[in-house]
Design a protein around this nucleic acid. Structure first.
Lengths: 194, 194
DNA sequence: TTGGATAATGAATATATATTCATTCAAGAA
DNA sequence: TTCTTGAATGAATATATATTCATTATCCAA
């Protein structure tokens, strides 16, 4: 099994992404992935240990890219509110830009937890980013003190994921990034009339 | 294939719930389900068309129960805020009371959408309930007018699901229902400091 | 041009398990 | 007690597909 990140390696990863997204991990077959990548079935095994490994590498690769961008986005903000806004916008942008990834992250996360619990999953990283932002906001005074931070984090992430999930189910037709500001507004101000 | 809802039918459904929750639909085997139910493999086929059908019936059955309770909970409230609070509390309560269901709803929804698109999925029903509540709140004046209702619904549902998901991953150790009030507080008031 | 190494192939294999069905069992009727 | 009918069994079957590996192609250095 080669480990160099050749062009073919990425070709296979991309094909796998498309096939997994379309059929789900279990219904996707090695032959489908191979033929979409324009290689023979056996070739996949020169680059990946097995079918599980393909999914694992895919997530690992995508997670790395996305998380780096999210980190940058947060770092680019000064206040907690700016950071939060940047994070949410970045999140929506990345997922809008890669629908296969969005579908796979949505559907196969559970299976992944089973096969590779050492994968630093994107939720965990995300929640840590949020912790810092919330803490900063509380110090600044822009975020309430009387909050259960563990709940707030899940609340924020859950809502974004829900929004993405809807977008995916609806066939990815509308502009997801446009949801960023209204969403942040909901986080900050809630729905209550005044 | 029998259609009467005998005791054995429910025994099998329950076993299936436990096995699906533990291993996931694909890794779960007919033999595991059968042996847990204390019947022979072939017996499952007297009650269910095939493996897919077991999952389908399971979700269908659970959805019916849960949705009825949710409906009642909402109906028991007078103001929009009461209704929302009742709904969220009911939601958390039902899922806390049936962890297998919580896991399965979380993990296998996508597969279900594929096999049985005619299943009135719980999200859809839920979102409709929320629509009514939001609309009522806007009329009452307890909920802001300047909201994109489609987004608010997803925002609310996403956040509850996220909270449940965390609870499941954490091994269902803490009291989920206790999250209801803080969560509703977040929906209503947001996180912004004043 | 050739030889050796590396990469790719795809037919054959191995395995897993969903599903079937000939047989057995159980219970009530005659 | 014997018959009849429907339920239940579980060993045998059928199928699907992940994985292997003997063979072939490709590439590059000498």
């Amino acid at each position: 099994m080669q480990k160099n990140r050749s062009e073919k390696y990425h070709k296979i990863l991309n094909s796998a992404g498309a096939v997994f997204a379309k059929y789900g991990f279990y219904k996707a077959t090695i032959s489908q992935i191979a033929s979409r990548a324009g290689v023979a079935d056996g070739t996949l095994y020169l680059y990946f240990k097995n079918k599980d490994d393909i999914l694992y590498q895919y997530i690992h690769y995508k997670t790395g890219i996305v998380f780096e961008k999210m980190n940058d986005a947060v770092a680019a903000g000064k206040t907690a509110e700016e950071k939060l806004r940047n994070l949410i916008r970045c999140h929506l942008q990345e997922f809008q830009g890669d629908r296969n990834m969005a579908v796979i992250f949505q559907s196969e996360v559970r299976y992944l937890r089973d096969i590779q619990s050492q994968i630093k999953d994107i939720s965990k990283m995300y929640l840590d980013l949020l912790s810092d932002i919330i803490e900063q906001g509380q110090i600044e005074g822009s975020i309430r003190q009387d909050l259960f931070v563990g709940l707030v984090k899940r609340f924020i992430l859950g809502a974004v994921e829900g929004v993405i999930s809807t977008w995916v189910s609806a066939g990815s037709r509308y502009d997801l990034v446009a949801m960023a500001d209204p969403l942040v507004d909901l986080y900050l101000n809630g729905v209550k009339g005044r």
